[in-house]
Design a protein around this nucleic acid. Sequence first.
DNA 1: CGTATCTTTTACGTTAACGTCAATTTATCT
DNA 2: AGATAAATTGACGTTAACGTAAAAGATACG
Lengths: 131, 131
Amino acid sequence: MTTETMNIREMCETFDVTPRTLRFYESKELLFPVREGQRRLFTKRDRARLKLILRGKRFGFSLEEIRQLLDLYHMDDGQEVQLSKTFELAKTHLADMEAQRAELDEAIAEMKKQMEWGAKKLASLAGDPKD
Amino acid sequence: MTTETMNIREMCETFDVTPRTLRFYESKELLFPVREGQRRLFTKRDRARLKLILRGKRFGFSLEEIRQLLDLYHMDDGQEVQLSKTFELAKTHLADMEAQRAELDEAIAEMKKQMEWGAKKLASLAGDPKD
DNA sequence: CGTATCTTTTACGTTAACGTCAATTTATCT
DNA sequence: AGATAAATTGACGTTAACGTAAAAGATACG
């Protein structure tokens, strides 16, 4: 099974990103591909991290915020201090996300309302032309 | 009642933004404050728009995307073509937002799971010190 | 072996969304 | 009127998150 690691091209196709993006994330210490000579090989762990990175971006988190949060998902045997700091950080972000969810619900409701109004307007314009 | 319009300072305090931001949004045609001589006076409509702008930003929309969407909320007697285009745009964004909500729910669930793991780890480290 | 393709490094370029600073104008206070 | 404070208009600066192009080494292929 050669699916253990992926080269940069496979990564790009799988996640719809450019090579530049992957190298950039590595330079920012978000990913840690191993090397086979010069070439990068992305592990299962890199793929899991990238998935979380892209998700974080969709929620409006910066790469630096994401980088810190990734530690929570990766933490194997960190020191207690580090863990508890990360834990605090995660609590904050969880609260952020739940707040965002509430606002999103509200926004969706409002948008639907506006769209109903728009639909009515459209109908009246179509059915009741000014001659 | 002088609360009909607000000056730039009042706006900044109310919405926690800088003057530069408000002028920038005006330059990008997101806000349309009236003038009293040189000074800007922000109307109720500007305040409603700003609220939507800030919300849109929190959902990761760009100012340009937001600008286009604002038309939907402002549309009084636009032409039918414009209205129906805006309507289509809104449908797309609504779908985006609902997808985002689904992903957000998933992310929240995962984050909670990770945090439970973290909490356990913390407890074991605290209650079971290595000597 | 030559060449075409892929990847890498280096480095400068770009866009969005403001920040910052200087020079003026306008309003306010004493 | 003079000083002080607040708002405005340029205009250049900044940061994040990549894009893009050049030069060079590694690999594959006929």
